[in-house]
Structures are given as structure tokens and as C-alpha cells.
């Protein structure tokens, strides 16, 4: 379960001054559901997810993740969260096994538990062939599989994915999407950010459209289709953020 209440994040930047990356965002993600966070470049997706993963501290508002407050108990939140983003890379000089084992240890697991869990994950993700090779030589697909195993080693209740299919080929992207769906089927709370509309249609139970740091629309896919009288997710997105003009204005900034 993720509950965000009036979440706000403002950055101080030397050149650009104050940047309101996330403004007054409230939403709820339930277990067994995939919440799709939709937004253009710079909309505030990554910042929102980092707030939930306690990598950043909110300047306003609050959030609870898996029952713990992100400000009061960030370490407890992190024990229940698996965070995967394009910016969470692997240690190139470690093998996949060492990498995943390290994160098991960091999550307080003992050697036997790590070994058992790693066996399961490696079978599910078909990693046997490269488990003992160093990550620096991996293909993008192998890297992504290793990263997923890294986020899942401690079997977290909440999964946070920030554009996990970025830069992947169709086959690998499909495998990832299937895996995210699998997480939901096991009853995990999943939040998934993307700007690829087709992924939202295929994957998400609830979608939130974020624009310029604000959550401008939210609902199940059928609710959104009904509200904007559009079937196509892309059209819904354009309407929700205020039409082509708003997109053009956002691009200028």
C-alpha cells in the first residue's frame, strides 16, 4: 500500500532558482494493483518515485509506504520497497550473484535465505547462464534481469518501477512487462512510471497523469476513457494535460 498526501518537492537550483518538481500530489496504490504514473519529460515522475523510495525528503506533505512514514521511518520503508530505475545501475566489477547477494545482506537476510531466494529468482528470470559473470560485460537485457533480481531479493511488498523498459528492445521490454504483471498477481503493490501509452493500456489498473509536478487526472482506465470521451490513451493524456498548447508550453521550459 502506498498513500501520498499533498506530497511536494521543491529543488533549489543555482541557475534555475526554485524548481517545484512535485506539487501537492495525493494518490493511493493498493496491493494487487499496478498504478501507472504517466507524464512527459520533466513532469516529476522520477522525483515522486524517489520521494516514495525515501531517496529524497519531501519539502511538504507526507506519504506512507507499506505502513511506514517516509519521513519518520525511511529505513523501515526501504526494507519493504524494491526500487528499479534507469539510474539504479549494477556494480560492474561484481558478478550478478555477488551483486544480488550483497543486496540480500544489506536487507539483513542470512546466507541460507539469500541462497534459497537467489535460486528461485535465477530460475524465474532464466539467469543461470550469466549468474557468475561480471556485470560490466552484460547486455542490456542481462543487466535488467539482474537489477530485477536485486530489487526482489528481499521479497518486498511494494515495487517502484521508474521507466523500466527505457532503452530495451521489444523482446526484453515484453519480458519486463510480463514480470511486473507477475508481481501484481502475487499481491504486491506496484507503481510504474512511463511515458509510453501502450504500456499503460496493457499493464495498469489505475493511471495518474502528472504534468508540471501536478497530478492532473486519475482513475481506472475505463473511468478515464469515460471522463474524456476518448478510447485512445494518448488522446486522453493530451486532453488531461490541457491540450497541445500546454505540451508545447511545457517543452519550452
Amino acid at each position: 500500500m502506498i498513500e501520498a498526501h499533498h506530497l511536494t518537492k521543491t529543488f533549489k537550483d543555482k541557475k534555475r532558482g526554485l524548481i517545484a518538481a512535485v506539487r501537492d500530489v495525493s494518490f493511493t496504490c493498493r496491493p494487487g494493483q499496478i498504478y501507472g504514473l504517466l507524464g512527459a519529460n520533466g513532469a516529476g515522475k522520477t522525483t515522486t518515485l524517489r520521494l516514495l523510495a525515501t531517496l529524497l525528503k519531501p519539502t511538504g506533505g507526507s506519504a506512507t509506504v507499506a505502513g511506514h512514514d517516509v519521513v519518520a521511518a525511511p529505513e523501515l520503508v526501504r526494507t519493504h520497497v524494491g526500487f528499479l530505475a534507469a539510474s539504479t545501475a549494477l556494480y560492474g566489477r561484481l558478478t550478478a550473484r555477488e551483486m544480488i547477494t550483497y543486496f540480500g545482506q544489506l536487507n539483513g537476510m542470512d546466507a541460507a535465505a539469500i541462497k534459497a531466494r537467489l535460486k528461485v529468482l535465477s530460475a524465474e528470470l532464466d539467469m543461470g547462464e550469466f549468474l557468475d559473470r561480471r556485470c560490466e560485460k552484460f547486455s542490456t537485457g542481462m543487466k535488467q534481469k539482474t537489477s530485477i533480481a536485486r530489487t526482489l531479493i528481499h521479497d518486498p511488498a511494494v515495487m517502484i518501477f521508474d521507466e523500466p523498459t527505457l532503452g530495451l528492445d521489444v523482446m526484453t521490454a515484453r519480458a519486463i512487462v510480463a514480470f511486473v504483471r507477475e508481481c501484481r498477481n502475487r499481491g504486491k503493490t506496484v507503481i510504474y512510471s512511463t511515458h509510453i501509452m501502450s504500456e499503460v493500456e496493457k499493464l495498469c489498473d489505475v493511471a495518474g497523469i502528472i504534468h508540471d509536478g501536478r497530478l492532473v487526472a486519475e482513475g481506472t482506465l475505463s473511468e478515464l476513457r469515460a471522463r474524456y470521451a476518448e478510447a485512445d490513451m494518448e488522446e486522453i493524456f493530451v486532453k488531461a494535460v490541457g491540450g497541445e498548447a500546454a505540451i508545447a508550453a511545457a517543452l519550452k521550459n
Binding site: L55, R78, L90, L106, N107
Partner: peptide
């Protein structure tokens, strides 16, 4: 890898 590490509890 820093962000990955910071994700740990």
C-alpha cells in the same frame, strides 16, 4: 550505482 546502494535499508 550510488542510487542503487541508497535504495537499501
Amino acid at each position: 550505482t550510488m542510487e542503487t546502494l541508497l535504495c537499501s535499508p
